[in-house]
Amino acid sequence: MDHFPGNWGRLRNDDYDAYGTFPIPHRPSNAPKDTFSEGVQRTQQPIVTGTSVLAIKFKDGILMAADNLASYGSLARFKDVQRLRPVGDYTVIGAGGDMSDFQYIQSLLDDLVVEEFTSQDGHNLGPKEIHEYLSQVMYGRRTKINPLWNSILVGGLKDGQRFLAYVDLLGTTYSADTLATGYGAYIAQPLLRRAVEGRADTLTEEEAAKILEDCMRVLFYRDARSLNKYQIATITASGVSISDSKALETSWEFAEGIRGYGAQTQ
């Protein structure tokens, strides 16, 4: 998974966009370029983007984390965005990638949940059903070459069954005890695996929350498109809850001891 959502689904091109600033100087033009290129232009690029989402299984359910930043290229544009959302009574989804596409996906899911509710047939959507629905939507859109530019984690618990799975703009899906999207796939996933693999059935909620917090901190240190303000979603048998935004404790003293670049010469 490429950390830069702007590069997803295409080769990285340093000549073209060395500093990841594409939204401002390179807005896509919808005007016809010549007599042959009329028609709907639907190949798109993400504009306002969210970075990593992390999630792990623990003894009693699922924990998911994402920060509150929505970036506009390299600009930290919106700093109070909720990237974790509840869907129905048993599920949370968390998204990286294009935030307007994510809002559209939320409205799709809201319509779906209302439709299921109004049928009053005694069935409720669980995380499995929501993930399957999302997968079909995402794969369907990629097949129309009109993707929803996101990578999404779906976590939940229903009838005592924990569920955690991934789906992205290509319709690729998978499931595991630890999942991470975006830059988190490189930096947090190895840490998560070391902490969780083989222990998903014994970890307590407190231990799991500590693991996620540590990973969010490492991501904030290393991912330039991240923020030290994040939320945690907890899904257990008692339901879904999404925390208020928390601040990450960070320490930058080590920077004082670094020598040899920038203005500091000795």
């Binding site: 295409r10 073209y16 966009d17 060395a18 370029k33 190949t43 690029q45 993707p147």
Partner: peptide, 16 residues
């Protein structure tokens, strides 16, 4: 390198 006007580029979504 940031001046793309001189050599137009096609950025295309890769569905695979």
């Amino acid at each position: 390198p940031m001046n793309t006007a001189s050599h137009p580029q096609q950025r295309q979504f890769n569905p695979y």
